[in-house]
Simulated assay, not measured.
Amino acid sequence: MSANLNTTLSQTVTGLGYVLVEIERSAGGLLRVTIDHPWEAGQEEVLIAVEDCERVTRQLQYVLEVEGVDYKRLEVASPGIDRPLLGESDFERFNGEMVDLTLKVAIGSEVAAQSVGAVNANRKKFRGKLRKAQAGGWQIELENEAAKPLKPGAKVSKKKLEAPATVMGFTLDELKEARLAPIVDFKGRKPKTV
C-alpha cells in the first residue's frame, strides 16, 4: 500500500473528526478502513455507530475517486472487540483490560527462569491484564493457567495455595502485535478495575 494512500485516508478520516485505526487491502479489491473516535483521559467512551461509518464511507468514496485509487469495494468499520492497540495512547486507554500480545522474539530462557510459575522460553503469545509499570513501560499480568475453573461438585483442598500471578514487563518496541482480548459478555462489558 502506498504511503500516499495512507496519508490521504488518514487526512480524510482525521478531517471528519475520527481516528484512523487500521487500513487493510486485500487481493480481491477490498479496501477496509477501521475508524474510532478520538480519546482523551477521563473522557467517557464513545462507540462508533453505523452513521459514523456511513459518513466516512461517503467522504472516502469521493476522495478515492478524485485520487484515482483502484478498489472494488470499500468497507468502513469500527475496531470491534479485538481492537488492535497501536500506540502509547491506546495502551493508556485500555489500561486494566485483558489483552493478547505477540512478541517479536520469544522471551528466552533467562526471562522464563525469573518468572514465578512455569513459562515456556519459546513463548511469544500471551494473554493477561494490561498494567502500567511503575518504572515506566508496561506489564501484563498473565492469566493463571493453573487456576482453571473446577468442574461442578469438585472439592478443593484447604491446603492448596493459590498460585501467584505471573507478571511480565515489556516495551512497545518488543511487540509484534497487541489486541484487546475478544471477551464476549452478553450483559455488557464490565467496567475496568485498575
Rank of each mutant, 00 (worst) to 15 (best):
M98A: 11
S89W: 12
A163D: 12
E88A: 14
V99K: 03
L150A: 09
K125C: 00
E162A: 11
K132P: 00
S78A: 15
L85F: 10
K160C: 02
L101P: 07
L142E: 06
L85R: 10
A133K: 07
I107R: 15
K132E: 06
F126L: 05
G136R: 07
S109H: 05
E88F: 14
L142C: 08
E92M: 13
G137D: 08
T166F: 09
A77C: 15
G169C: 03
P149W: 04
Q134D: 08
T102W: 01
R127H: 03
D90A: 15
N120E: 10
A165E: 06
M168F: 03
V111K: 08
V167D: 01
G169I: 05
L103A: 07
A121F: 05
L101K: 11
P79N: 08
K151C: 07
G96Y: 10
K129Y: 03
K129M: 05
Q134R: 07
V156F: 08
A106Q: 09
N120T: 07
N122C: 03
V105S: 02
A112Q: 01
R83G: 12
L142T: 00
D82C: 14
R123V: 01
G137Y: 13
A133S: 08
K129C: 03
P149Y: 02
R93Q: 15
V156T: 13
E88G: 12
R123E: 10
K158N: 10
A133M: 04
P84K: 13
G153M: 07
T102Y: 03
L130M: 04
I81V: 15
E97K: 11
T166Q: 04
K104Y: 08
K104S: 01
R83C: 14
D82N: 13
T166W: 04
A146S: 14
K148C: 00
S115L: 14
I107S: 11
A147E: 13
R93V: 14
K129G: 00
S78R: 11
N122Y: 02
V119H: 03
K132C: 02
A112K: 02
E145Y: 06
I140R: 02
T166G: 06
E92G: 11
K160E: 07
A165N: 05
F170G: 05
K155W: 10
